[in-house]
Simulated scan of single mutants.
Amino acid sequence: MERRTLLKMIALLTGGVVIGGNAFLTGCSSSEEHNLKARLKLTSQQVAFLDEVAETILPTTQKSPGAKAAKVGSFMTIMVNDCYEAPDQQIFLDGMDKLDAACKKMHDVGFMEATAEQRLVLLTAIDKEIKEHMPQNGQSPNHYYTMFKQLTLLGYFSSEIGYKQALRYNQAPGRYEGDVPYKKGDRAWA
């Protein structure tokens, strides 16, 4: 028996609509467009580029490794492939070229050839520009740098390096303590 037929029978027997039934039915469609989601095919150089962008956003410090050590570039690729719609995937992909072009315009070298200081100056300027042009309601069209930054933070702090070395990690925290002493410079809890 086909899933579509089964869902229709369940709906008839229960006298109502199956919650989420549309998702089940569209999952049964035979349309190639619906079944095949666009996938980014990033080269190892592009993943290395994303690692360097992430490392500039969250660099290695004396206390913890940076985003590059957490392989955030590979994480970004997976998230963009699995979670972003095709238009956002294109914004992300085009953003790598735009970021490289902006670096060449500002520093006369590509992003990968730029020094850590040059990269930081560039990303700080782009971040400032985005914040200045954000509408009052806080909603703005997706910007490639915002995507890079959000995925960097998500990838890093959900990695083992992020939650065990950058944050204070307690595998079995025990009881809830609402008032924990805090000293300036303490790491947040994972």
Rank of each mutant, 00 (worst) to 15 (best):
L93A: 10
D94T: 03
D94I: 00
D94V: 03
G95F: 11
M96W: 03
M96V: 07
M96S: 12
D97W: 06
D97F: 09
D97Q: 07
K98E: 15
K98M: 15
L99K: 02
L99N: 11
L99E: 12
L99D: 05
D100C: 01
D100Y: 01
A101G: 01
A101K: 09
A102L: 12
C103Q: 13
K104Y: 09
K104V: 13
K104G: 08
M106K: 15
M106N: 09
M106G: 04
M106A: 12
H107Q: 06
D108N: 03
D108Y: 10
V109T: 13
V109R: 04
V109K: 01
G110D: 14
G110E: 13
F111P: 02
F111I: 03
M112N: 04
M112E: 08
E113L: 09
A114I: 04
T115Q: 04
T115S: 15
T115F: 11
A116R: 00
A116K: 04
A116M: 06
A116F: 12
A116H: 01
E117R: 00
E117L: 08
Q118P: 05
Q118T: 00
Q118V: 03
Q118S: 02
Q118N: 06
Q118H: 02
Q118A: 03
R119P: 06
R119C: 11
R119L: 09
L120T: 14
L120D: 15
L120G: 14
V121P: 06
V121H: 10
V121E: 15
V121Y: 06
L122D: 13
L123G: 10
L123H: 13
T124V: 03
A125V: 02
A125W: 12
A125Q: 14
A125T: 06
A125H: 12
A125L: 07
D127L: 06
K128C: 02
K128F: 14
K128T: 15
K131N: 03
K131A: 10
K131V: 05
E132Q: 07
E132P: 01
E132H: 03
H133A: 05
M134L: 10
M134R: 10
P135K: 00
Q136K: 00
Q136E: 11
N137V: 02
N137W: 07
G138D: 12
Q139V: 15
S140A: 13
S140I: 11
P141Y: 14
P141S: 14
N142Q: 14
N142M: 15
N142Y: 11
H143A: 08
Y144R: 00
Y144K: 03
Y144E: 10
Y145A: 02
Y145L: 09
Y145W: 15
T146P: 01
T146Q: 01
M147S: 04
M147G: 07
M147Q: 07
F148Q: 03
F148P: 02
F148T: 02
F148S: 01
K149E: 13
K149C: 03
K149G: 05
Q150L: 12
Q150A: 12
Q150I: 08
Q150P: 04
Q150D: 11
L151T: 05
L151P: 07
T152S: 04
T152V: 07
L153Y: 09
L154R: 09
L154D: 13
L154M: 13
G155F: 14
G155N: 13
Y156G: 01
Y156Q: 08
F157E: 11
F157W: 15
F157D: 06
F157A: 04
F157L: 08
S158I: 05
S158L: 10
S158C: 04
S158Y: 07
S158T: 09
S159E: 12
E160L: 06
